[in-house]
Design a protein around this nucleic acid. Structure first.
Lengths: 294, 294
DNA sequence: AATACAAATTTGTCTAGGACAAAAAATGAC
DNA sequence: GTCATTTTTTGTCCTAGACAAATTTGTATT
């Protein structure tokens, strides 16, 4: 596997991979005839552990002072902490056949109303997926399979067409951000709080956002920056956006990469989906607090 | 705008941007206090033109021998060639309000059957979007808005759950590939030709594909590599995949980046959606040629 | 002991310029 | 014209050094 393939595969920059090798002596790949790096499958696995530990808050200096075995141990320690133990969810995530997953979710959604489904079912499910991914018990493929089903289900519950009368919020992710699900949950909640959501599922270049927001006449743009995004890049992008976007349009940002972010004008940080209702009420004076059940 | 932001924004590698500057003298960015490159908005626009010309088959040597104005001229020449002139589509793409787009599509889908909708409506629409993007008449944002609606609509028409009895095909894109729509059309067509599709909308790392294909017991994996993907990377990834995937599982590849690709064992190249029916019949002996209308 | 500030360390991304294979174009032979 | 061979073009990789931003450690003050 070339350095570029590896970089895409696990989401670590090429420069970073090279300097880790120089500084910490890991990963040291084989070289092909030309002297180019060639990584083994084992190294890919070990790097995935490293990446996960890092996104859990561990620093490289510490991570690389451990042996691979110790790293895995630390990982299971860290990810053993509180996560939902719900039997039904466990079964859905780890055992259910792919074909059944979607219908099980629909069943749950029918049983609860939309807002409760999000808080009581979708959020715990996301946490469980996150935990499964962190601890390595859940393959990325299966994680995608499940989150995909949830995405498909929730997208059908978004109005899809702004009525034009109410002020709406534009939800999108920037190029490079692959995790959309948390944002989608937020979009549904905002909509249920009376603020129609315009959902853009494809990643958009930063420079396109201002014009689009203008054209759609939204009152806010909501973005999510997951743990994969480095905090540095999130910061750069948010302040670039703040500069280029109409100052009257609010920016709502969420996700692990913006946990403690120095504030910008008209920027709201939303790290907990339970805040959505409060935010909606405080900052957007909703025309009506309607909660239409599906 | 930093070199990294620019690279993500337009999809050209950092190394490539630097060597263009060295070789062709463009783009020459300003430098900040540290000596780091800082690109202007005008340069971003000009680079978008360059990128588009390149994906239209022009080579850098030629592109950079032109002035920016000449480049724009060449672009309109090249993209003036045959594209659908359908009035209704033109209106949908360029004038319709975002809220109406989705319902107009649904109306068309109800009027035609699914297969005809794809061939007579969706494909021309995609071509028009492509043309609009190439010629710069259509903003990326609006393009995404429209293709997003189409995606949402078509996803509801996929079975979503494999029955388990018929052999199914797994459709996915690899990390870094942003264009899914063409592949989605193919998935719908394969399904209508009697081969259930399993659709994964999130981009998946290459190394995860073999295990997933095994678990889902599919007879083939279908991937798409759009013009954004360099032909080189598509090639590398396809042959990596061929090595790691069960040799009995076919690979179906499509998209501009695999136009003339030297063949690999059990690899089918599909560059025209009209071939789908033929491919399905020739290689997969469908259990039934059913065409259930929605 | 807690808080605030300064110094040291860690970390990721940038810089430069060189090398080389794969792809494309140009050349020559038939 | 077509095919095979050379030449040019082009993108990605290489090394090794620099430096700011973030974080930790150390010190002084309340």
């Amino acid at each position: 596997m070339t350095i570029q393939q590896l970089s895409q595969e696990i989401g670590i920059g090429i420069d970073t991979l090279r300097i880790w090798e120089r500084r910490y002596g890991f990963p040291v790949p084989d070289r092909d005839a030309r002297g180019h790096r060639s990584y083994s499958l084992q190294q890919v696995e070990e790097l995935r552990v490293v990446k996960t530990l890092q996104s859990l808050g561990q620093r490289p200096g510490k991570i690389f002072s451990l042996t691979p075995a110790q790293r895995r141990e630390l990982l299971s320690e860290l990810s053993a902490q509180g996560f939902p133990q719900d039997r039904g969810l466990q079964k859905l995530v780890y055992q259910m056949r792919p074909g059944e997953i979607g219908s099980e979710m629909s069943r749950q959604l029918d049983a609860l109303d939309l807002v409760n489904f999000i808080h009581q079912y979708a959020v715990p499910l996301l946490q469980l997926l996150d935990h499964g991914w962190n601890s390595g018990q859940l393959s990325i493929a299966r994680e995608h399979l499940i989150s995909d089903q949830l995405e498909a289900l929730l997208r059908t519950r978004l109005s899809g067409s702004s009525t034009g009368s109410d002020p709406s919020i534009l939800f999108l992710t920037l190029s490079g951000e692959r995790h959309k699900l948390g944002l989608l949950l937020a979009a549904v909640l905002f909509e249920q709080a009376g603020l129609p959501a315009i959902w853009l599922s494809e990643e958009l270049p930063l420079s396109e956002v201002p014009a689009l927001a203008q054209e759609l006449e939204v009152v806010a743009v909501a973005l999510s920056f997951s743990g994969h995004y480095s905090a540095r890049q999130a910061k750069q992008n948010l302040s670039s956006l703040r500069k280029s976007l109409d100052p009257a349009i609010k920016i709502i940002a969420g996700g692990h990469a913006v946990r403690q972010f120095t504030s910008l004008p008209n920027l709201l940080i939303c790290n907990d989906l339970k805040q959505v209702d409060l935010l909606a009420k405080r900052y957007f004076q909703p025309s009506s607090g309607r909660k239409d059940k599906s």
